[in-house]
Design a protein around this nucleic acid. Sequence first.
DNA 1: TAAATATACCTTGACAGGCGAGGTATATAA
DNA 2: TTATATACCTCGCCTGTCAAGGTATATTTA
Lengths: 106, 106
Amino acid sequence: MSITSDLIRGHTETIILGQLIAKDSYGYEINKAIQEKTDNQYELKEATLYSAFRRLEQAGFILSYWGDETTGARRRYYSITPLGKEAYRQNKQDWERAKELIDRLI
Amino acid sequence: MSITSDLIRGHTETIILGQLIAKDSYGYEINKAIQEKTDNQYELKEATLYSAFRRLEQAGFILSYWGDETTGARRRYYSITPLGKEAYRQNKQDWERAKELIDRLI
DNA sequence: TAAATATACCTTGACAGGCGAGGTATATAA
DNA sequence: TTATATACCTCGCCTGTCAAGGTATATTTA
């Protein structure tokens, strides 16, 4: 943990979209993947994660559907839309630019 | 402009502290320097700038004093404190870490 | 078998930083 | 005299994060 949220703020949606480009997934799995990718240095708080899903779906960047689990807890799967893929590309580009600017400034 | 504020959020204070390490300065000048450094790609909004000054002074990271201009508008100068320098070093380190994490995730 | 843990979802309300909009004042250029 | 540049400031809204709380199923442990 420890990485302050303000440094990640604004990347949450991009991170989620990035996960969904690889494959359809659900909240719990996405968060586990994030933790693994960062060697447990970062995780999304649940409230943050689920409110991001709402925004992304609202914006037409993702679609959701219930999984057909016959056992265990139900899962709401998300898939990325073409619009979402475009947003991801744009966000990634913005990040490259922002990174360069911030490096210049600090 | 254009760089969304959420990507910069959390860097405002570090950027200001970074400017003040070079030399004492005042709001207007700091903002001009930021614009120059980024080829006019970025600027702090005034409300953002001045509220950041308040926080930084409150935290003991900077001190302020009025300039002795005999002409033109008055200037409130800021200088960075040892505590502010330490905060700057820490923030910069956090940035390096965050950058690496975000690059892994998106 | 009871309790704890892991999986999996969700909402509410508070908080903090960014910023639009508005304001003040001095000096210079058109 | 009007506009622009310099230089400061505040108020109140907006948005994303997250602590705290809740629900339900399955497995592991005591």
